[in-house]
Design a protein around this nucleic acid. Sequence first.
DNA 1: GAAGCGTTATACTAT
DNA 2: ATAACGCTTC
Length: 649
Amino acid sequence: MELNPQQKAAVAYDGAHVLVLAGAGTGKTRTIIGRARHLLEQGVDPGRILMLTFTRRAAREMVQRLTQLTGQEQLPLMAGTFHHFCLYTMRRMPAAFGVANATVIDRDDQVQLMKLVRGGRRRKGEQLPRASELVSLCSYARNTNQRIADYLKRYTEHDEATIEKICRLAKEFERRKRANDYLDYDDILFVFASRLQADSALRQRLKSLFDHILVDEMQDTNPLQWLILDGLRDPARLFCVGDDAQSIYAFRGADFRNVHAFTRRVPNAAVLRLEENYRSTQGILDLSNWLLTASPLKYGKKLRAHRKTVSKPSLLDFDSDFEEARWIAHDLIERHEAGADWRDHMVITRTGYGARALESFLVEQKIPYRFVGGTSLMQAAHVKDLLSLVRACASPRDELAWARYLTLWPRIGDVTAARAIREMRTCSDTRAAIASLAKILKARRDVSDGLSAVLGDWNDPPAAITRAGHYLAPILKTRYSNWNQRRRDLDLLARLAKRHRSLVAFIETYTLDPVSVTESRRLQGEDAVTLTTVHSAKGTEAPVCYLIRVEPGMYPHIRSLGREDDEEEERRILYVAMTRARDELILTRCLRNGGFRRSPYSVSVAPDREREAYFFKDLDRRLINSEAITAYFDRSDDYGALHPDDDDW
DNA sequence: GAAGCGTTATACTAT
DNA sequence: ATAACGCTTC
């Protein structure tokens, strides 16, 4: 593995702590891997290295590459996300953290629980935010380590009475989570960080586990995650890599002070820089640099291409997202027929919703693709139905799982389910709960039989999943019209379960690391186009990148308008998207309305404001391929053949 | 009173 | 695609 002098300096840095500022495409991953390899060569025990990445995928890739490099079969180093690491550690010391029987819940469950806490319908003109908004507020306050009241007063415009009400609901939400033995994503970090801070004996014990902590994507860590790093360092040494121009998770509490204030917080730390870009052509970087220069914030960053080729990005205009999608599908097929692999192409979208038209074309044209960041397998309704049965078996106190499972059955609705759940709450284990349930629903033996059946296969995850599937099939068949498609997901679930020893661990793994439906349906390594959201594209690259819907209302996204910080984050999102491309960057957009299924936002919210804020409003045309612009003004040519009369859609 | 059914609103990013 | 809502049915 070749390293340039800057990378070498970082890899071999010998002081206590270091922050590596690495621009897009400057070999960040390579440098972290190089660092780990260097440490191993120095004789550091792999078990004493902790690698924290932003996604499980990134962790897997790094360990894989490192394993190849070192020629070892298995490297017992700990690599994963902050959430993964914290949960793993807490599971091994349940008493110290008080999370012995916890069920990990995802965002959907949080919202569901909040609905129960908040109470039903939202009347017109009501000040109180909806449940999903309440969850976001709580989550943000938690991750930025502030009291929810302070956060609401400082950064929102709710009146005092509403703030008080929200605080009461937040408190009740916390109480309800504890009553159900739930741990949400935020709790995982919060409980870990608080115990780490409060219990000095525990802190010493955890500190003694590692000598080196390697952190990727430092700019997207939040204050809670900083507390964790802070609690674990010294004698352990921090090696943090990040780029403030690529900070795109502020909405989740990420705080790039973790980068900017690093040397102030860690006095004996050094800052190193990686500046040479190995990924893209200068043409792609020129446009990316231009975007940052146009910002009121001074990023003080100019990416230089190491490569000699200069290919300008193209910008193509279409009348609708429908035509845009058709053109891309056509272009992909053309390139594939000319000998290119599908996998060399990545389509990047701001929102999952924005890729709907394209997705339908990919399916229709039978172009193999995987959608990273699309609907996750675990969020599909039928999968949740099945998992509710498994989760109900795991914990008599998991009220969301019980409610979902019970109301699947005909003639059992909210009220009956709630009554049964109240009764079972007092039961100490699942067997007792099932017995109690059988008593309440005398005539409904099938309801409790399903639970007993799954319990019977409890220690054989794939068998239990399969059994649960068989048990629920008759009900699900009547519930979902496309049952035959959906049942395949349940088979897939059983196959995924094979890799896990316990059902709880299985569910937990995929709750923390969601698999997208298209991703999991495809076999690993199969040649396919990648369709991804910008956020999920972070850290990845492809020779050919299509950046779709680069239009007013999307960049910056309409929901960010009016809040300066949010609009600036949108700029970085576009920057991250553009810097994924190696050889070719193709930007597409539709400036005119009248497309197929326009988003309701684009019409209802001030279009002037959208256009005014649009990042390409004053685009320097010299930065993009002029032929592409011609194609927009004179659209009678080539791809015209593809759409004869397309109004029949 | 509880469950079921048809219609309508809603949709940014995600560990 | 899904959930919530309002109305009908048991």
